[in-house]
Design a protein around this nucleic acid. Structure first.
Lengths: 159, 159
DNA sequence: TATGTTTATATCGTGTACGATTTAATATGG
DNA sequence: CCATATTAAATCGTACACGATATAAACATA
C-alpha cells in the first residue's frame, strides 16, 4: 500500500479540523444566539457595529473578510428585524452606511455575556487557558498569512 | 463600563478567526480543486472514500460530522459526475452504500499532490513547521471537545 | 469636457449547512 | 406476533458563501 496516499487522510491535514472546528463552534453558539434571534454571521456583523457604529458595507466586509454578495442580503435581514439602517452616503452615493437602531444597540447588553459562556463550554474540557492563548495566537497568524495569500482585490493583469 | 464590552471585540474571541481561517483555507484549495472539478466538501467526501471504499452515508457523516440533509444532495452531485454510486444495502434497506467508480478512484492520483501544495502555500509565510504541528494538535483536541459538547443524538462509536 | 476606468453595492446562480419533518425499514417489548 | 420505538435517508425551508456579472457613481486624464 502506497505510503504517499496517507497525505490524503483527514487526520493528516490541517484543513478538515479547521473546517470542523468552525462549524462546531457555530453550533455551540446556537442556543445563545437563538435567544437574540441572530445567526452566527449576523452576530459577527453586530459585533463589528457594536465596536464602531456607522460603517459602510465595504468596511464591515474588510473586518469580516466578506463581500457585498454575502453582506447585502444579510444586512437586509438585520434591517428587517429593526436592528439597523442602511442609507446611501450623501458624500459618496456609491457607499451604503450601516447604522444601529436603538434596538440593535440595546442587544449588546444581552450579547455581552455570551463570550464567557462559550469559553466555559470549551474550557470545561481538556483545554487549558494557556493552550487556548497560544492557539489563538497561531490562529491569528494563520489568518493573516492566508489573507495575504488570497488575491483579495484582484488586480487587472490584462491590457 | 467600556472595558466590559471588549469581550465582544472580534480579536478577543476564538470563534471568528476560526471561521475566517476555515473560509480562507477553502479558498486556497479553490484553484487546485477546480482542476478536479470538485468543491471542498466534495473533496472531503472523496478523501473519506479514498481511504476506505463502500461506506454508508451515515458512516461518511460520522467522519465529516455531517448528516444526510447535507450529504444526500452532495453525494447525488458526485454521482452525477460519475465518480461514485449510491446503492441501498441489501442487508439493511435503510442504509445507502456509497462506492467509488473507477473514475472516482483514478481522481485520487491527481489529488495526492494537493496537500503538499497547500502546505507550501501556508508555510511559505511566518508559520514554522513546529508551530503548525502544535497548532494541529490543539485543533484536534478542540474538535474532540466541541464534538463531545454537541448534543449529537445519533452517536455510535464504531461499526 | 468627453470618455474610459475604477469603485461600491447589488444581483444571480450554485452549492453547502442545518433545524425540522417525513418516510420506510428494522429492532424491541409485551 | 403485533404494536411501538428506533434508525437511516431523504426532503424542505432558511441562510449563508462566493464566483461572476451588472449598475451607477466617482475619478482620471487626454
Amino acid at each position: 500500500m502506497n505510503q504517499h496516499f496517507k497525505k490524503l487522510y483527514l487526520e493528516n491535514q490541517i484543513c478538515f479540523p479547521l473546517y470542523a472546528a468552525s462549524r462546531l463552534t457555530t453550533k455551540v453558539y446556537g442556543p445563545y444566539l437563538k435567544e437574540l434571534d441572530l445567526t452566527y454571521p449576523q452576530y459577527l456583523v453586530m459585533m463589528v457595529l457594536w465596536k464602531e457604529d456607522h460603517q459602510t458595507v465595504n468596511r464591515i466586509g474588510e473586518r469580516l473578510l466578506l463581500e457585498s454578495n454575502t453582506l447585502t442580503p444579510l444586512l437586509k435581514r438585520l434591517e428587517q428585524k429593526g436592528l439597523l439602517s442602511r442609507k446611501r452616503s450623501s458624500l459618496d452615493e456609491r457607499s451604503v452606511v450601516v447604522s444601529l437602531y436603538p434596538k440593535g444597540e440595546i442587544l449588546k447588553e444581552k450579547a455581552v455575556s455570551i463570550p464567557d459562556k462559550i469559553l466555559g463550554d470549551i474550557s470545561g474540557s481538556t483545554m487549558t487557558a494557556e493552550e487556548i492563548r497560544i492557539f489563538q495566537h497561531t490562529l491569528l497568524k494563520l489568518v493573516d498569512a492566508l489573507n495575504a495569500k488570497i488575491p483579495n482585490d484582484t488586480k487587472q493583469d490584462n491590457i
